[in-house]
Design a protein around this nucleic acid. Sequence first.
DNA 1: AATGAATGAGATTTCATTCAT
DNA 2: CATGAATGAAATCTCATTCAT
Lengths: 211, 211, 211, 211
Amino acid sequence: MPKVSKEYLASRREEILDAALVCFSRDGFHRTTMQDIVRESGLSPGAIYNYFKSKEEIVEAIANQRQTKEGQLLRDAVEAGPAGTALQRVRDAFLGELNNPKERLRRRVSVQLWAEAQRNPSIRRLVRRSFEQPRKLISEMLWAAQKEGAIAGSIDPDALASFLIAVFHGLVLQREWNDRFSAEPHKALFDLLLQAATGSANAAELEVVER
Amino acid sequence: MPKVSKEYLASRREEILDAALVCFSRDGFHRTTMQDIVRESGLSPGAIYNYFKSKEEIVEAIANQRQTKEGQLLRDAVEAGPAGTALQRVRDAFLGELNNPKERLRRRVSVQLWAEAQRNPSIRRLVRRSFEQPRKLISEMLWAAQKEGAIAGSIDPDALASFLIAVFHGLVLQREWNDRFSAEPHKALFDLLLQAATGSANAAELEVVER
Amino acid sequence: MPKVSKEYLASRREEILDAALVCFSRDGFHRTTMQDIVRESGLSPGAIYNYFKSKEEIVEAIANQRQTKEGQLLRDAVEAGPAGTALQRVRDAFLGELNNPKERLRRRVSVQLWAEAQRNPSIRRLVRRSFEQPRKLISEMLWAAQKEGAIAGSIDPDALASFLIAVFHGLVLQREWNDRFSAEPHKALFDLLLQAATGSANAAELEVVER
Amino acid sequence: MPKVSKEYLASRREEILDAALVCFSRDGFHRTTMQDIVRESGLSPGAIYNYFKSKEEIVEAIANQRQTKEGQLLRDAVEAGPAGTALQRVRDAFLGELNNPKERLRRRVSVQLWAEAQRNPSIRRLVRRSFEQPRKLISEMLWAAQKEGAIAGSIDPDALASFLIAVFHGLVLQREWNDRFSAEPHKALFDLLLQAATGSANAAELEVVER
DNA sequence: AATGAATGAGATTTCATTCAT
DNA sequence: CATGAATGAAATCTCATTCAT
């Protein structure tokens, strides 16, 4: 019989991860010391080690949390309305959050994770998954659209999905680098790309020309 | 009167940076110890500290080197042929290098720098510059193209330049995450986007010019 | 709520300072390594850094401790009996301790501090204080004695206090340099000086002659 | 046959010691690096090592130089006039130099040497000698004076000599600690002590001799 | 003799982690 | 479960000294 409830334990775990996120976002994984997390969380080192075996495990838990939450965010956006406009909602979900301060905190950690993925296989797996999962979802949406003739046959839905996510990731970086960054003008370009891909009369012609 | 020539000193400096690049690419900045760089360079700690005041300064020198070299690469691509196809050459310069092993080494360090830029102002400045410089160059090309009517008036050249670079950065990440990554399918999407920007009528012309 | 009592922490701090004193006395501040203090104290490096931010801070704490304890020693001597003989007690307190082995350990560190005071402002402040404090005390005793006519009016009590302390400091050095040093013969000279300063009949004549 | 003259070598050696004195006086022996001396002297490390085997040897050479020069200074003072007033000249030689800026530079190094003597036998030997030599000279003067009846038979000339030097050393320290230090008031006390040593009756005679 | 780049042992300090309470 | 003092391996950096030129 546990002395404290499962809920208590889970909420403590969340507290630690919240504190860690703040620290990681501010100082990066490597410059963040366990003492920083101790201070930020208000707990003791020993307490933290009751919930996580190591600092590495906290990083991984953060990566995991990111992956889960981002996946959920995307699925929510997709399911929030009619299939035909799902891509627009996905676009807005991504671009819209670029200026959300709380979300930016998390994005900063995501950028750290991209770097960390290079040398940490566990992180790499999670980072891959948080790329593959949305890619797959978008890809499936595009396959479906193509089947319905809404997207030109010459388009590779997998590639387009990757391409779109590449844009998102690239804009996340730009958001960090540029204090006056605005996602607005990119919306139009995003749509331009999607329209080009859709099987409008012109689009088809373009495709023909391309060959 | 220096005991050894300026060239000798400069080449020693390069040697150290080369060694550091290998280490950083393999282990990241923070996991790389000075001893690692010592081993990789074949020099002694003291020797390295004759060229760089601190490990931080090595990281900054790497960032600086990256910024300089990437800028040069881009300018070379632009100036390598007729203006009309410059964008295609830029596209190829970027996408083509994604599989170049030596270049990948450097890309890995670039990703590290993106993360490091978040908490190191010097790095941030350099990273910003290595984004702003190509963005400006591409932007200017697009402005010129728009003036000539090769690009639809509704397009914001600045935004499009940012957008294109976002794609490149995003694909750099995907290249890292996916061992079987191929840039090929993205070329077509890149062109699709450019053609969409030219407006339907001119698209054909653009292609014609390209050949 | 602290896990261990304030007293425990304070006594640990004292332990470290005691160990440091032994090392500093033996090897000097600069030849003493943190490892030496680690060995002498039986603690770990980390433990020591929990109590002191740096080696410098240990040196300063030692200087502070010296200043405090010496001040106390002197005040105790002064207050130990009738005022008339206070100067004798001060004299004995100083000269008597010159051969006390434990005290010699501390004197050696004091000499180090005199040297260190030249380039470390914090140390300088503390060293100054451990000179100024006794000087003031002795000076006040002499002013009082002069008021009562026990000391010739021609004597400058401030100067005499400085002079007496100069003798003490000089003898501390000689004690270090000479293994067979004895403070005994200096007691008589010390008294001779004090008697000369007192308004005895002869003293008055001497004063007259002096002019 | 040496390639360069002995004078050249000696003057280079002096240059190095002068540079070292400046550094040592400013930063202390331990904080002074060979690079500091290199910079201050305008020579190269290799050059300096042609004249001194080690940094330690430079410190010892400085100590030696100090000992020699101070000894000479004292002998000069003694021999500068009639024996009867030699002590006054010695007193003035010491007290008078306390405010000489160039001399202060050297005093600072002397204080360093006092500390260094504690753990360096060579330095200790030299420091002892630079105490013993003047002590002996003064002692001999006092013995002679006693023989002539100019000093009371109850006085121990050896102790008085030590005592006087203790005062000098103590005042050297005070000079360092107190920016507004003046040696003037101590002259009178010095004389008071000497007069007290002559015994009441002879005091007048001493004065007479003095004039 | 002079140069100064290179050496490398060793110093200080940090910090993830443990464990007695 | 929580605490937080203690641990100690390991990191960065320094600097006296050397030696090829």
